[in-house]
């Protein structure tokens, strides 16, 4: 499960900040899961919980919020949802690992351009953290 690597990256990042502040406790951690990467929410949550525990960090509240993936065509400015683009499963699998490879596969449904910008919902990241 590569969600563990993603979770580990979050934990590493959070811990480096905690170290700086000499803290051992997080009051609220807000993690966003962008739907483009379609990371498994439950696996991610489990991995985060376990990894924080193993480092002796207490997380009072862990919020995982999903963010819808939107792509905007730079040429005609139309905005597309993932469902609009009708992506085959094997491509979804590739995008799951490296979201940007979507550019190898999709074109704007309106004008055919490949110059699409991922404007939201790319991947997993820390939106905010309260100590």
């Amino acid at each position: 499960m590569h969600e563990w690597a993603l979770a580990d990256a979050i934990v590493e990042a959070a811990c480096s900040l905690l170290n700086e502040r000499r803290a051992k406790r997080i009051a609220l951690l807000n993690v966003v899961i962008g739907s483009l990467q379609s990371a498994d929410r439950e696996v991610l949550k489990f991995a985060l919980t376990e990894l924080f525990k193993s480092r002796g960090i207490k997380v009072e509240e862990l919020r995982l919020n999903e963010e819808e993936a939107l792509l905007r065509c730079r040429l005609c400015l139309k905005i597309w949802k993932l469902e609009d683009l009708d992506i085959p499963d094997d491509v979804k699998e590739a995008v799951h690992f490296i979201p940007e490879v979507i550019h190898a596969y999709v074109r704007c449904l309106n004008c055919g351009s490949q110059d699409l910008e991922i404007i939201s919902g790319r991947g997993v990241y820390i939106a905010s953290m309260e100590l």
Binding site: D8, A9, E12, A13, A14, C15, S16, L17, Y125, I126, A127, S128, M129
Partner: peptide
């Protein structure tokens, strides 16, 4: 907030 660098170092 994007704090992915420590993970890169670790890998």
């Amino acid at each position: 907030m994007d704090l992915k660098n420590p993970a890169i170092m670790k890998r």
